[in-house]
Design a binder for these strands. Sequence first.
DNA 1: TATGAATGAGGTTTCATTCAT
DNA 2: TATGAATGAAACCTCATTCAT
Lengths: 188, 188, 188, 188
Amino acid sequence: MARVNTRQLITDAAVRVAARHGISGASMDEIAVEAGVAKGSLYYNFASKDAIFERVMRDGFERLGTVLSEARQGEAPGAVRAVAWATLRALRTNPDLARIMAAEVFRTDRPWHEALELARGSVVVQYRDVLREARVARGATAADAEQITETAGAALFGALAGAFLDWLLFRQDQPLELVLDQVLALGE
Amino acid sequence: MARVNTRQLITDAAVRVAARHGISGASMDEIAVEAGVAKGSLYYNFASKDAIFERVMRDGFERLGTVLSEARQGEAPGAVRAVAWATLRALRTNPDLARIMAAEVFRTDRPWHEALELARGSVVVQYRDVLREARVARGATAADAEQITETAGAALFGALAGAFLDWLLFRQDQPLELVLDQVLALGE
Amino acid sequence: MARVNTRQLITDAAVRVAARHGISGASMDEIAVEAGVAKGSLYYNFASKDAIFERVMRDGFERLGTVLSEARQGEAPGAVRAVAWATLRALRTNPDLARIMAAEVFRTDRPWHEALELARGSVVVQYRDVLREARVARGATAADAEQITETAGAALFGALAGAFLDWLLFRQDQPLELVLDQVLALGE
Amino acid sequence: MARVNTRQLITDAAVRVAARHGISGASMDEIAVEAGVAKGSLYYNFASKDAIFERVMRDGFERLGTVLSEARQGEAPGAVRAVAWATLRALRTNPDLARIMAAEVFRTDRPWHEALELARGSVVVQYRDVLREARVARGATAADAEQITETAGAALFGALAGAFLDWLLFRQDQPLELVLDQVLALGE
DNA sequence: TATGAATGAGGTTTCATTCAT
DNA sequence: TATGAATGAAACCTCATTCAT
């Protein structure tokens, strides 16, 4: 159990350090100091630096996937606004992690690339599905709704991430609800 | 004369290498080989690795800004579709650069951060303005249009970048026009 | 424990290498080989090459200061000969270090310049004081003795260093006592 | 003739740059800028960086030798004070060069080492001779005077250099004559 | 007589990883 | 379960030198 705590300590520290310097710029030394453990403990708990960040990234996308599922279950189908809002709140819960995910999501050179793609894909699919449901809810046929592809899901995710980071870096004095309005303003 | 050519050779090579390994992972050795010059020539023409990528990033955003201006000048105000299409074509012209820009645009730890922010800001403003114009074109008052802020511009840019990279990595067999349709499908 | 030993191993090696090539010409590679440790160990134990030589130079002057204090305590005031002899013996104990100190003592461009100046100053003051005491011992008033300034101390140190290095490079076959006589021959 | 001027321009610049950074730290780039010529011109006028500094050092010691000869010719034999004063004035004429000479005089790793040793030797011999003459002038026999060796000459040179640099770095507000007094105060 | 772009060997430094304790 | 000294490959960068003009 102490071990579980140490692992969490390490991944949390890794996220904070990577938010400051990027993943490549995050040194194991600085992560160890930030976590308050010795450098050797990093290797006792993880096989490598890559293993730490694979865990970080996978956890991040899986958590986002869970958030989206829960948001959709609590609403009628096609509740784009609810899903978007759930996304923004999730990103705000851990802004450091949000920044890392935004910078890494389209990189193909990382060792965890393949594992990450699955998690990312299941998130994008959820955005696609909610967009399809919304089209159906507006009276479209199922065939028509299927014109919506994962590319649209990626676009919605990009819009949310772009708007959130804009808010995080430049407009934190404003309520997050305004960000939601601005993203949905694209849908007019 | 030769110097101008060499500098271009170097920045072009730097973009290709960074697309493969990220900016941190792009070594000066590999950039030199890719550019076909000696490593010393990199330092004769640029003060540092950072200086190379500052130039790369700044050129990228300035180029995008120019593309957007030109697209807007050739159309009636509020031509979101035209601006979006111009963006996608510009990204396709240099997909390697597009990937780097997407990964770097929200990083604040880079030495070129401040310079980049100006260039990024002027791009985002153009998206915001075209969204405002579109709202006016649909009959809204000027006051109503000004509800649209730069956050919406950032969202549009994020949507375009997200959709483009999704296409670049997974769906290059499809025509780019479909990406445009999917992004605009958010606006329904 | 091991660390203390390693640090000493490194500074000792650095002195030997710098005696051969000068401080600027002493490469970290050669120091590592000379010390019998890996190059990385140099940086585990010292922040930089400069930090190594700051330690070397500071230790050197502090050691000399201690030697002078002890020599003066064992003699009547104004024992110039005893102090000069203690200096020459100390220089002979580590001739490599003596050469480095002679070459570096008046450089102001080194990062350790300021720290070194303090150590050098306290040595020069001791030479000045023993010269003053000697003048008093010959019957001069205290006011008269205070005509002697640190410049005279610097001159005595320069005379000893110049004579010692002349001996070291060209006349090691002769006993060191002759060097003492030659320096004191200035005082006639 | 233009060439002669350029060579002088270069060696003068080299002295200034080396006074700031040491000889090893003096880059050909900085020397060229300081001299106001292109880097290529350095190599048109000198074979190498070493050739520049060999010229600088040799000129310096030869100039000092000339100054000493002239000072001795203008005085009665054994005029230690006159010779010491001539030395101090010569050092003050070009303090940058004086600093370089002090730092380099006992280095054996420079390519110009052997050439320099001759010039240095002839200077030291003059100090030795004037010390011998002084002893004779005080009534000693020739045999007794020959007890004075070149080591004493090196000591006198070291005393003058040490005192001068102490003045140069810390006490330039005082007249140089005081430095002369302090050095001669050793001879009491 | 002079230039400056280009070079590449070699320098200092970083850092993920190992391992004895 | 945890530590931290030690490692060495590989990174960034410097700089004396060359050469076409």
